[in-house]
Design a protein around this nucleic acid. Structure first.
Length: 488
RNA sequence: GGUCGCGUGGCCGAGCGGUUAGGCAGAGGUCUGCAAAACCUCGUACAGCAGUUCAAAUCUGCUCGCGACCUCCA
């Protein structure tokens, strides 16, 4: 439909027209979570952003293969207190199995993603499930001369690579800058150069996750899984690779190097990076201790939270900001989003009740065009929402009788909201009840209230309304004498 | 220190050379038995200084403040 889609490509630092490598097909890889602890909101933001991108690509009619990995190897060690060998001395059965941790947090991650109404990826590969592929890729890189083995570990030879290929394109860094910022890290004497990074790491005795390999028992390095799995499922070159901005400088830079060294091809056409979530201006992160997990957010059970916020209110909150901007969390902002979200959703409930006319007083076609223009401009959901709120105004005005709409325009508007609010933004109604008992009870109560109101017994009718309010049920008298109700 | 980015009205947050962002909060009004909701009207904001231009929040330079990455982290 309509115009061209433009995507901001980190490689070129500008918006580029999106032209898939294979017409009508899109391959997209997103770096997923490391499942050794609960996801926090900042993680969620990235995945929700890419969910939006995935949804819009689907909406445009592309056949998308969306791959998002689960990192369940490489970072996991049985000994949380390194240097202290008390854990190593414990019987193995006393320790938690690494895969137990993986299972627990993978399930938790999926639950949270479900709560946020994200679509599952097409493929969700795990690092532990692709050890062979990673080893094969490493062997290939060694064969091509860009990696070397030392004491059972394999390192990528950045200084050799950098002579033949651009290395720091994602961050605009040159060799001198990179070298100037290298730090002396202990225990890294094995590396030939300070920029070299591990492809395969020799496992210490206490390391629980370990696999045999041509270089001895060990585990894969931190970047190789994404290269191996993306090329396996999407090919040596694919359309979109995404992830959080914090992965740009190291993880993604090294992914490019690995793939180039292996296949002599640049792996990705469009690199996309989402910005961070901050709390009171500081990045939310595990180490900063200012991260709360989604459950705490939903329940309000956290010192930073005044109250709980529903998943959809949070999703709306994120959609009000462009994915490349930092998003600063505050209770005030969340509360504002909660109200905006409800306003948006409640206007959609009016569609069935709207009466059509012979003419339309607002320009629905332009509104629709503006929505597509916004999304085609690098997925600008903030502008999209601004346009949708113009639609909300129109709906409410028609319902109130101050504007009119034709049947055809109404249909356009209904489809527009279905497409963008539900399908693309991924917002869904919540808190509504289709419980027939509560519906029946409410009809009964409201009919009694209507009776006493007819007798001008306002004391009683207000008592009913106030009491229902206590139960978080709001009652609204509308101008045609009807009364509507909804859960707060 | 290096690389990149940001500073917009009470709050959040788009815009990036000329025309309304939008949401929330606030003020007034319409409607209503009263509420609520909705609708209408209202703020004339772009860190500071200088420059380019007929025209700058939007471009350039400098200053100040903030952040990200450079170390596992989306």
């Amino acid at each position: 439909m309509t115009n061209k889609l433009f995507i901001y490509n980190t490689l070129s630092r500008q918006k580029e027209e999106f032209i898939p490598l294979h017409e009508n097909f899109v391959g997209m890889y997103v770096c997923g979570p490391t499942v050794y602890s609960d996801v926090h909101l900042g993680n969620c933001r990235t995945f929700i952003s890419f969910d939006l991108i995935y949804r819009y690509l689907l909406h445009l009619g592309f056949k998308v293969r969306y791959v998002r990995n689960i990192t369940d190897a490489g970072h996991l060690e049985g000994d949380r207190d390194e240097g202290d060998d008390k854990f190593a001395k414990k019987a193995k059965l006393e320790q938690v199995e690494p895969m137990e941790i993986v299972q627990k947090y993978t399930l938790g991650f999926h639950n949270v993603m479900g709560a946020f109404n994200t679509l599952p990826p097409s493929i969700e590969p795990t690092a532990t499930g692709h050890i062979i592929e990673q080893q094969e890729m490493i062997q290939h890189i060694i064969k091509n001369g860009y990696a070397y083995e030392v004491n059972g570990s394999v390192y990528f030879d950045v200084e050799k690579y950098i002579k033949e290929y651009p290395y720091g394109q994602l961050t605009n860094r040159n060799l001198e800058d990179l070298l100037a910022n290298t730090r002396e890290l202990d225990g890294q004497d094995e590396k030939h150069g300070p920029l070299d990074f591990a492809l395969w790491i020799n496992a210490k005795p206490e390391h629980l996750m370990r696999w045999s390999s041509p270089w001895g028992v060990g585990f894969p390095g931190w970047h190789i899984e994404c290269s191996a799995m993306s090329s396996k499922y999407l090919g040596d070159t694919f359309d979109i690779h995404g992830g959080g901005m914090d992965l740009q400088a190291t993880h993604h830079t090294n992914e490019i190097a690995q793939s180039q060294a292996c296949n002599h091809k640049s792996p990705v056409k469009y690199w996309m990076h989402t910005n961070m979530l901050t709390v009171n201006g500081v990045r939310m992160s595990k180490s900063a201790g200012n991260g709360f997990d989604p459950d705490e957010l939903f329940t309000g059970n956290h010192p930073l939270l005044d109250k709980g916020y529903s998943p959809m209110a949070v999703r709306f909150f994120m959609m009000q900001t462009h994915y490349r901007s930092t998003l600063d969390f505050s209770n005030e902002a969340l509360t504002a989003s909660e109200k905006g979200y409800r306003k948006l959703m409640s206007s959609m409930e009016l569609f069935d009740k709207i009466k059509t006319s012979a003419t339309t007083t607002s320009d629905i076609a332009t509104l629709k065009k503006n929505c597509y223009d916004a999304m085609n401009d690098d997925f600008n959901t903030a502008v999209l929402l601004a346009n949708l709120f113009e639609g909300v105004r129109i709906i409410n005005s028609v319902y109130a009788g101050t504007e009119t709409i034709t049947e055809q325009d109404l249909e356009t508007l209904v489809n527009l909201f279905q497409d963008f609010v539900i399908d693309v933004l991924g917002l869904q109604p919540e808190g509504s009840s289709d419980n027939s008992i509560s519906d029946g009870l409410m009809n009964l109560i409201l009919s009694i209230r209507a009776d006493v109101k007819a007798k001008k017994d306002f004391a009683t009718s207000d008592k009913i309304r106030d009491s229902l309010k206590q139960l978080n049920i709001s009652v609204k008298d509308e101008k045609d004498g009807k009364t509507s109700w909804s859960f707060e």
